[in-house]
């Protein structure tokens, strides 16, 4: 029996907007075990991003329990949360959130700047390696405005990998990529998953979900479905099946 890396119970998140209250999450309970590859699906506005932000320690739930690696997040100080985000979690934002006018490599280096255990040389090396992994080895010094949407997304992916996280939280990380590139990225994620990294992946596309071991479907802030995928596809194989591109 693998240990639970994430455990949430009756998690609620409400947003106050003046007199109105938006119930984005209406009491969600589930857990994710170490080494799982979970996709979260659901229509727009169903609360996927809201949940992922809480899982990534970027936001606090209104009520309910959230334990990460057996520790209740509520009991952690702001600094401890920062350290968890820095060393344990790789987060990919739906809107990339790259620093403008800053080169790809510097964007990828960013998490390591706040980790004093990593030297300048190591930081650079790891950033280059991460960018190569997402196929941007040739674009190290381009700034976001000089990159396509898909390339920016890949920089964001590289940034989430650079700190060797135990857990990757991705919010529509392939939303802007063509089929081929998104399969490449999925095959990269599958490889990382095989190495033991837990992945939680928000997506709209059902074919992406077939690469994961489990799917959770949200609707209006509640869990609709939560099922294991017994027939996990290999992204690498699917990639090979795609018609070859001419160069």
């Amino acid at each position: 029996m693998k240990k639970e890396i994430i455990k949430i119970e009756n998690l609620k998140r409400e947003f106050r907007m003046g007199t109105e209250t938006v119930h984005a999450l209406k009491g969600i309970s589930f857990d994710i075990k170490e080494g799982e590859f979970v996709t979260i699906m659901g229509s727009s506005g169903s609360g996927k991003s809201t949940m992922l932000n809480i899982l990534g320690c970027l936001d606090q739930p209104t009520s309910g329990l959230y334990e990460i690696d057996g520790v209740s997040v509520k009991d952690l100080s702001r600094n401890e949360l920062a350290t968890i985000r820095n060393e344990k979690i790789g987060f990919i934002f739906q809107s990339y959130n790259l620093l403008a006018r800053t080169s790809a490599i510097e964007n990828v280096e960013l998490p390591l700047l706040y980790n004093s255990k990593v030297s300048t040389e190591e930081r650079r090396e790891r950033a280059i390696k991460a960018l190569e992994m997402v196929g941007l080895g040739e674009r190290l010094h381009h700034t976001p405005s000089q990159l396509s949407g898909g390339q920016q997304q890949r920089v964001a992916i590289a940034r989430s990998l650079v700190n060797n996280p135990v857990m990757i939280l991705a919010d529509e990380a392939t939303g802007n990529l063509d089929t081929r590139t998104s399969y490449e990225i999925m095959s990269l994620f599958q490889e990382l998953n095989k190495k033991g990294i837990t992945i939680t992946f928000v997506t709209h596309e059902p074919d992406i979900a077939t690469f994961s071991s489990r799917t959770v479907v949200l609707k209006d802030g509640e869990i609709m479905q939560d099922y294991q995928n017994h027939n996990v596809q290999s992204a690498a194989t699917e990639l090979a099946k795609l018609p070859k591109q001419d160069h």
Partner: peptide, 16 residues
């Protein structure tokens, strides 16, 4: 502020 948010998201502490 957005930049500050991002820096904190990737692990910057308030003091940083």
């Amino acid at each position: 502020t957005k930049e500050i948010g991002l820096r904190m998201a990737v692990g910057a502490k308030g003091a940083d």
